[in-house]
């Protein structure tokens, strides 16, 4: 096991997959000469060359569209959309093309495409650059949506995504690149579509993913001091959604809090809560509680921005409320 950052883990996954399979290539804005706006692909351009690390114009629709075309004829593109906010510009290609072709053409087309993008607020980038709209992308059958919260998961899931024959929307979090964690040595993958218990506990189940895993684990640490043992289930994949570990945990603790960074309305928490009610209603001793972003466009001002984003104290409070 090596203790590395999220950035290093993602970078390693890309590098190793490109070394393993010549059909894997990267395309996106500033991925090459610049080295990636989040420095994930630093050094790639010099090592793999301009054909495999392709700088593109600022053309999100063309980035995703061309990556789909290349995937159709047998390549394994990793298209980078600089932030998830720009993915709206490429929305048609993500949801109307990538997610549909295999089904709509009767199985004859296969789109082994990975779209890497960066979600999340907290960097004072204002309303257009700070959104966490992950749930929107998880709405569409045909797309797989992955959002890891630890370096090990990021590495294993990204490698799995690149080897997967379906289109995968891979969401990294803007403020997690420096997060450190243990990552196994050597080549490994983590299957897409498997939730995981990241911390065991008997009293309350927290269901979360991505950045909010870190927030939730910190809240769990605080609550331990009060004698409250929280179990934290990390979804890791938003579609296909694996509810099994969630339901098993809720049946044990009989209480659930869902923590997400995006807005509450129509969000991940809404989906997970509905499924808990549908499939484990009789096991609940309290209503399911949701912690989410305040329903405003994120402001620039640091204090206001942090007020809008879910904090450790919000999670702690929500857990107390369901007890």
């Amino acid at each position: 096991m090596a203790r590395i950052t999220m950035r290093e883990a993602i970078s390693q996954a890309l590098w190793e997959e490109m070394e393993r399979d010549p059909k894997v290539f990267i395309m996106g804005e500033e991925v090459g000469v610049w080295g990636g706006t989040y420095a994930v692909t630093r050094g790639f351009y010099d090592h793999f060359g301009p054909d495999r690390v392709r700088d593109t114009p600022i053309s999100e629709a063309a980035i995703v569209g061309a990556a789909i075309g290349a995937a159709l004829v047998g390549l394994r593109p990793v298209a980078e959309i600089m932030t998830i906010n720009f993915a709206f510009v490429a929305m048609d290609h993500i949801v109307n093309e990538a997610a549909k072709f295999h089904y709509m053409f009767g199985g004859q087309m296969v789109v082994p495409l990975v779209i890497r993008t960066v979600s999340g607020g907290g960097r004072q980038l204002g309303a257009t650059h700070s959104q966490t709209p992950d749930a929107i992308f998880a709405h569409f059958p045909g797309l797989k949506v992955v959002a890891p919260g630890t370096p090990a998961d990021a590495k294993g899931l990204l490698k799995a995504a690149i080897r997967c024959d379906d289109p995968v929307f891979f969401i990294e979090h803007a403020t997690l690149y420096q997060l450190r964690g243990e990552v196994p040595e050597g080549d490994f993958t983590i299957p897409i579509g498997q939730s995981k218990v990241q911390r065991e506990g008997r009293d309350v189940t927290i269901v979360t993913y991505s950045k909010m895993l870190d927030t939730s684990l910190k809240a769990a640490e605080e609550l331990t001091r009060e004698g409250i043992e929280v179990e934290v289930v990390d979804l890791r994949t938003l579609r296909p959604l694996d509810m099994k570990p969630v339901l098993e945990s809720v049946k044990k603790t009989n209480r659930a809090v869902i923590v997400e960074e995006g807005w509450k309305s129509y969000g991940v928490g809404a989906e997970v809560a509905a499924r808990i009610y549908e499939e484990a209603f009789d096991f609940l001793d309290a209503p399911v509680k949701r912690v989410a972003q305040v329903e405003v466009p994120l402001p620039y001002n640091r204090t206001l921005e942090q007020m809008a984003l879910p904090q450790v104290k919000d999670v702690v409070q929500a857990v107390r409320e369901v007890l």
Partner: peptide, 25 residues
């Protein structure tokens, strides 16, 4: 034959990608 596409213009970037795939290989 890589399809009929019903979102106006959406298949143009995909066409560029088909050609990119050929150049790459």
């Amino acid at each position: 034959f890589w399809g009929g596409h019903a979102i106006v213009g959406a298949h143009l970037p995909i066409a560029a990608g088909l050609a990119l795939g050929d150049v790459y290989q």
